[in-house]
């Protein structure tokens, strides 16, 4: 997703030290055939490589993943106050 990397250059994200996204049970992902989170996330935060990786640093806080995961397996919280995505225009 080279294009996405290019578009992300135009997004300001103040990255917090700790992830604000985690899984209830990583084993559920193994049995999840379609792994839709790897597609519906607008910035490709989730990708599969032996296990589900979460690049929380790219999250633009659209709010889709806690509801889009068919197994309700994603716990998404707000990044700490003042962190995360920020728009100036």
């Amino acid at each position: 997703m080279e294009d996405l990397a290019r578009v992300l250059k135009h997004v300001d994200i103040k990255v917090a030290t700790d992830s604000h996204i985690y899984l209830k049970d990583p084993d559920i992902c193994k049995d999840c055939a379609e792994k839709p989170c790897t597609l519906f996330c607008p910035t490709g935060v989730f990708y599969w490589d032996k296990h589900l990786n979460i690049t929380y640093e790219h999250c633009i806080e659209c709010g889709a993943c806690p509801f889009g995961c068919p197994f309700n397996n994603i716990i998404w919280t707000y990044p700490p106050g003042g962190y995360g995505v920020e728009y100036h225009s």
Partner: peptide, 9 residues
């Protein structure tokens, strides 16, 4: 010229 990218529910 692309300025920004975002998404929301």
């Amino acid at each position: 010229k692309l300025l920004s990218y975002g998404s929301h529910t």
